[in-house]
Structure formats: structure tokens, C-alpha cells
Design a protein around this nucleic acid. Structure first.
Ligand SMILES: NC(=O)c1ccc[n+]([C@@H]2O[C@H](COP(=O)([O-])OP(=O)(O)OC[C@H]3O[C@@H](n4cnc5c(N)ncnc54)[C@H](O)[C@@H]3O)[C@@H](O)[C@H]2O)c1
Ligand SMILES: NC(=O)c1ccc[n+]([C@@H]2O[C@H](COP(=O)([O-])OP(=O)(O)OC[C@H]3O[C@@H](n4cnc5c(N)ncnc54)[C@H](O)[C@@H]3O)[C@@H](O)[C@H]2O)c1
Lengths: 200, 200
DNA sequence: GACTTATCGTGAATTTATTCACAGAAAGAG
DNA sequence: CTCTTTCTGTGAATAAATTCACGATAAGTC
């Protein structure tokens, strides 16, 4: 498996490639490095983990690199995903159309508040959280996005895992636990802000 | 200065301490480790960088550790912050009351859309983005949170830096550049989702 | 007060990540 | 066709981060 830091950077590179796809067909390690705030050797080392052979003095062919990365990172097919908790943040995520183009198919939203579910206006199907297990199984949802208050986060995570979700993106500040075979990534805004001021 | 990973974990620890403050007065490296998904030696090494002396068989005194961490990470005073871009995400952030309790004083919001500014209902003062420079200077705002579309992100970042902001949290997927003395942290949801599926 | 136990602090060992240095490949110029 | 330039790929060197091992300390127990 790819080293963690390498995988993280490769995901970033993949995103950049999607954005610049229309531009001239090649991109160099130096250009990528300057966009990502790292060095060209790091980029080359990262990419060299993919056994891509594309020499010359023009850099990497964007289409080719993109496709190799897509395979290595398993990004070449869309992932069925859901959002749990449709408050301020969750409903913003539900409405974010770019996810589809980025390879994430948001196919369901869940909330515990029935009134909220009735009021919500969106293309995406929304359900009471009591149906989470059933819907996740029926729709073979693989990724769960948690946007509930921190005191409900563990409970939601546990249900998601039981229902068969393979990966979780957690927006709550709660420290949740999942079995080691399930991938968990935390996006804690407050921690991020704290890190920023700690580095000032 | 603290090693990057250490600083990041210490911020997380600080957040945990704030949450469990009411509980019994001590917490051990093992407990922290299990909450954070790391090991007890790592926690102890991290904390040992702070020259905290607190022996015994009860672990760390929560109040004491919290105060030492607050000093080391410069978190012991509130930081004046602003949000630029009051769309779906930005307005959710503007409304997130917990930031205040977490030591971040959101004192202004900005948007380029005048109609939006008039319609927004919030306690926090909102301004057209044309006044950003002036307001940031007048209110001595230190931290900027970017929630504008990716094609405006660099422009906003440049203005924030010119106005004197010291740290930036960027929610757009754009790869923005700032002078090295300004702290930049990116929260790219799509990259995070990609990382999750790459690890599945 | 001696004994037991849970926990910390930290130097040393190990693993992981980054950086360097340079050979090799292709594109373009003359 | 040869020379120059601009890239990549990668083994070796360096740096950073994590893990281990264990002595030291204080709380609780008898
Ligand atoms: N809003 C922000 O800008 C912001 C910033 C930082 C962190 N967060 C975190 O993101 C999470 C969501 O924040 P928010 O502002 O959207 O909160 P919110 O209160 O607006 O929304 C939470 C939603 O979750 C629903 N909910 C509660 N328990 C549930 C359960 N067990 N199952 C399903 N749904 C449930 C509620 O009905 C509500 O609709 C929180 O953990 C918060 O700490 C939000
Ligand atoms: N909404 C989400 O859930 C989500 C998810 C992932 C990433 N993001 C990113 O977060 C950012 C904001 O997303 P959003 O969904 O809130 O977008 P949005 O379109 O709802 O809001 C963007 C806001 O920025 C304002 N704006 C545009 N240019 C500006 C400028 N130069 N100065 C000040 N304000 C300006 C617009 O008027 C609008 O109000 C985007 O970069 C998006 O890619 C959002």
C-alpha cells in the first residue's frame, strides 16, 4: 500500500489535474510542486510509486498521469455516498453539486428531525435516520459523511459501520471510533483553526 | 518551534480537554491516545515537548495541562477572525456559535453580492468585500476564513494578506499562495473524500 | 512505613519521510 | 546528426517521526 503522506499528496495532485485538464497536455513536477507548496523531488518520488514510465523534457502527460492516479487511488469510478445530519453544514454539503463531477454520488441524506426532512428541497432523496441501515444496504452506499452534533456522532458512526459503509468522513468534533477495516477521516474545523493560530 | 505533527496533535488534545473539562480532574496518556487513535508514547513525547512536570499515577491534571497547552499554542486569548464568502458554507460557518467558545471571535463576514448581504440575518456584522481591507485593519482581524468559489480564492487571499491577516483557513479547492510568514491551512473536502476511498 | 501498581519522562532504536545528487531520456536547435 | 537543455527516476544520505524500554515517581493499600 502507498505511504500515507504519499497517498494524501497524490489525491491532491489528482484534484489539480482535474482542474487543469483543459490546459496544455503536460505538467512538470516543478509546476505541481509549486501549486501544492512542496518540492519537485517529493512529487517525483510520490509519482514514482506508481510505476509510470513517461520520460522526456515536457513533464507528465496530464491525461495519462490522471488515469494512472485514478487507478492507483481507486478513483476511476463514482462512489455512492450519503450525508447524515442535514443542519447548516449537512444541507450545504447536500447542495454542493461539484461532488458529482468529483466522483462522489451523494445518493441519500438522513436526519432525525422529521419536520426538517419534509421541509428540505433537494434533488437528493432524504430519509429519517431510522431508515439509515435499510437505505445504506439497498443503495449499496460505501461512504458516509457525518454532520450531526458531536454527541450523536459515535452512534451514527456505529450504525453506518453496521450497515456496511467502508469509509467515513467526520465533520463533527467528536473523537469517534470505528473498526480498523473502516477508513475514518476527521475534518475538525476548530482543530484546524487552532493549528493555524499555533503556527502564527 | 514545535514539530508540525506534534503541534497538530497538541491542538487536538487541547480540544479534547475542553470537552472533558467537567469530568474527573485527571486524564492519562493512554486515555488520550485511545480517543485520538494514536499511542500513549506518542502522546507523552508530544507533551514532553512542553516541559510540563506532572508525575504520579493519575496522569495529567486536566486544568494544568490545558493551561500549559493554551500558552504553548497561543490559544489562551480569543482570535479576531472573519469569513469571506457567505454562500452555503460561509453562512453555516457564520452561524456556528461554538467558534466563540472555542476561542475564535468571528467579528465580520464579507461577500461580493450586495443582495446577499442585505438578506443575511445574523448577529455578526457583514460587509461588501470591497470594504475588506478597511474593516480588517479597523477591527485588527488576525485570521481569515475563505469560503468563496475557487476562481476567486487567490484574489481574496491576496487582499487578506495585504490587509494584515496572519493566518488563513481555506475551504475552497483552489491551490492558493501566500507569503511564507502567513500561515495557510487548506480544508479541501473533495481531497479528503478521495483520500478516504483511496484507503478503502 | 513498606509494598504494589499505574503512570510519566526520555534516551536509544527503529521506521518513515524528505531531500539530494546525478545518470538517462527525449525534445528542439543549429 | 550532435549538442544543449530540461525533464524524469531513483539509490543514497539526511532528517523527522514513531516506537520501545525502562528507571523514576507518587497514589493507594495493608
Ligand atoms: N456549522 C458549521 O459551520 C460547523 C463548523 C464546525 C463544525 N461543525 C460541526 O458539524 C456538525 C453539524 O453542524 P451544524 O452546524 O450543521 O449543526 P446543526 O445543529 O445545524 O445540524 C445538525 C443536524 O443533525 C440532526 N441530527 C441530530 N442528531 C441526529 C442523529 N442522531 N441522526 C441524524 N441526524 C441527527 C439535527 O436534526 C440537525 O438537523 C456538528 O458536529 C458541528 O460541531 C459545524
Ligand atoms: N457547499 C459545500 O458543501 C462545499 C463543499 C466542498 C467545498 N466547498 C467550497 O467552499 C467554497 C464555498 O462553497 P459554497 O457552496 O458556499 O459556494 P456558494 O456559491 O454557495 O457561495 C460562494 C459565495 O461567495 C461569494 N463570492 C464570490 N466571489 C467573491 C469574492 N471575490 N469576494 C467575496 N465573496 C465572493 C458569492 O457571492 C457567494 O455568496 C467553494 O470554494 C466550494 O468549492 C463547498
Amino acid at each position: 500500500m502507498l505511504p500515507t503522506n504519499t497517498a494524501e499528496r497524490l489525491c491532491k495532485i489528482y484534484g489539480i489535474l482535474q482542474m487543469i485538464k483543459k490546459d496544455s497536455g503536460y505538467v512538470s513536477s516543478k509546476e505541481l510542486a509549486s501549486m501544492m507548496g512542496t518540492t519537485d523531488f517529493t512529487i517525483r518520488k510520490d509519482i514514482s510509486a506508481l510505476n509510470l514510465v513517461s520520460f522526456g523534457r515536457r513533464g507528465y502527460h496530464i491525461g495519462e498521469l490522471s488515469s494512472v492516479l485514478g487507478k492507483a487511488l481507486q478513483l476511476s469510478r463514482p462512489y455512492r455516498s450519503c450525508i447524515v445530519g442535514l443542519g447548516r453544514l449537512g444541507s450545504a454539503l447536500l447542495d454542493y453539486e461539484s461532488f458529482r463531477g468529483d466522483g462522489f454520488d451523494i445518493v441519500a441524506g438522513f436526519d432525525s428531525n422529521i419536520n426538517k426532512i419534509e421541509r428540505i428541497r433537494t434533488q437528493i432523496a432524504v430519509y429519517p435516520v431510522s431508515e439509515l441501515d435499510q437505505v445504506v444496504k439497498n443503495k449499496s452506499i460505501e461512504v458516509g459523511i457525518i454532520a450531526v452534533p458531536h454527541n450523536s456522532a459515535q452512534e451514527v458512526a456505529t450504525t453506518l459501520v453496521k450497515s456496511g459503509v467502508k469509509g467515513i468522513l467526520n465533520f463533527s468534533p467528536a473523537q469517534i471510533k470505528v473498526p480498523s477495516e473502516v477508513v475514518l477521516y476527521n475534518m475538525d474545523f476548530t482543530s484546524a483553526l487552532r493549528f493555524v493560530v499555533s503556527q502564527i
